[in-house]
Simulated assay, not measured.
Amino acid sequence: MTNNRMRLQSSDRELELEVSYKHLSFFQKKLRKIWQEIINYLVASQELQVKQKIDRHGNHYWQAYDPMTGKSFMSGSESDILAWIEQLYR
């Protein structure tokens, strides 16, 4: 394992810091992963969202929301939701 030494001077004290490339690589990988998760979240938050839900009476229904336009639609029919989506993107 190769170490890299850095000297930092702060007022009268001198601090010597050892940083191993192995640890640096670990932190770079972690930062890359965090950055990718942020990008994925931002992209996903702009995608059309369609969910099947159940009301308090046990009835199934569909809910769709387009964050780009701010429009939403609910229906008990899957085909109605599909028709709304098709019309939205024409």
Results as ranks from 00 to 15, higher is better:
K51G: 02
S11K: 04
N3D: 14
L17D: 00
Q52G: 00
F27W: 14
K29P: 00
A64V: 13
D66W: 02
Y89V: 06
V43T: 07
Y61H: 06
Q49K: 15
S45W: 00
K53W: 05
S25R: 15
F73P: 00
K51F: 06
W35N: 13
Q36C: 08
S11V: 01
G70W: 00
A83P: 09
E37D: 14
K71L: 09
E18S: 11
A44V: 03
L17Q: 10
Y61C: 04
I34R: 02
L48K: 01
E14N: 09
L17V: 15
E18G: 04
Y61K: 00
L82S: 12
V43N: 07
E86Y: 10
G70N: 01
I38D: 11
S77M: 00
I54M: 13
L24M: 14
M68A: 11
S10D: 08
P67R: 04
L17G: 07
L31F: 06
R90Q: 15
M1D: 10
A44R: 11
H23V: 03
E78G: 10
K29G: 08
K22A: 14
W84V: 09
N3G: 06
Q49V: 14
E16I: 11
Y41W: 06
I54F: 01
R5P: 03
G70Y: 07
F27Y: 15
G76N: 10
E18Y: 13
G70R: 02
R56C: 03
Q36E: 11
A44K: 05
Q36R: 12
H23E: 13
S11A: 09
A44H: 03
A44M: 12
I54T: 15
S72A: 14
Q28N: 11
A64C: 14
D66M: 03
S79I: 07
M1P: 04
K33F: 02
Y65A: 03
I54H: 09
H60Y: 09
